[in-house]
């Protein structure tokens, strides 16, 4: 068993929290709304690395999700979403406060195998883009082909976003998700509001307003 330290980042009691975009006030569209932008903050994001053969069983057992081994595939259930990032790397996004427990269960299920699970929830945020002009806003922002014919629901890619990068995912027929790094979030938001202006872009308040604190009470033990 790998000697790896797990760390629960969430306070036991509610604490003041700030999402990466807490400082930007929401604003309705000028005129008719063609695109809607919402920050979905305080989710737990985990990077899971390992060989598919190593991970698949544990992932299925703990998350109830089939590990997506096809490139650019995004799996989703009520626990969360699991996205292929690379042949040995996946992005797991779950409800805020759930990450520590799930990581521990995955570690237990994986035992001695070689893998890595890293909490990156403080380092990125999720922006949801919806509306009839969402695709055009994305076309202005990324070099990746986001045409719905080429980008079906359930696909997700990492690509260039303006002069930054983003994970781009298609959730359903009308909704897209962008996973952006915390430090670039302000830039990406300003870019999106600018690119969306001609279509009428509404910026919704961040949801949820504050993080939920620790879901399961644990001490900050070292798992070995």
């Amino acid at each position: 068993m790998s000697k790896v330290v797990q760390f629960d980042p969430h306070p036991a009691q509610a604490a003041a929290t700030q999402s990466p975009l807490h400082h930007v006030a929401a604003k309705p569209a000028v005129g008719e709304t063609g695109v809607t932008l919402t920050e979905r903050a305080f989710l737990d994001h985990l990077i899971v690395r390992g060989e598919p053969g190593v991970l698949a069983g544990a992932v299925e057992a703990v998350l109830g999700l089939e590990l997506p081994t096809q490139p650019q595939r995004l799996a989703r259930n009520e626990t969360g979403s699991l996205q292929w990032l690379s042949p040995d790397e996946w992005l797991l996004i779950v409800a805020g406060g759930e990450g520590f427990r799930l990581q521990r269960e995955l570690r237990e299920a994986l035992g001695e195998a070689h893998f890595s699970i890293v909490d990156v929830g403080g380092g990125q945020t999720l922006l949801e883009l919806s509306g009839k002009h969402a695709v055009e806003v994305l076309m202005k922002s990324t070099v990746y082909d986001v045409d719905p014919r080429h980008f079906p629901v359930g696909k997700g890619v990492t690509s260039v976003f303006a002069k930054a990068t983003a994970v781009i995912r298609r959730v359903d027929e009308s909704r897209w998700e962008l996973v952006v790094r915390r430090s670039f979030a302000d830039y990406c938001l300003r870019w999106l509001l600018d690119a969306g202006e001609e279509y009428g872009i509404a910026h919704q308040p961040t949801q949820p307003a504050v993080a939920s604190h620790r879901q399961t009470v644990t001490d900050t033990e070292t798992v070995s």
């Binding site: 490139p71 650019q72 690379s86 042949p87 070099v143 990746y144 890619v157 690509s159 260039v160």
Partner: peptide, 11 residues
Amino acid sequence: PYCAEYREEEE
């Protein structure tokens, strides 16, 4: 060859 599709040079 890992993503199994054509991508733009900027990536």
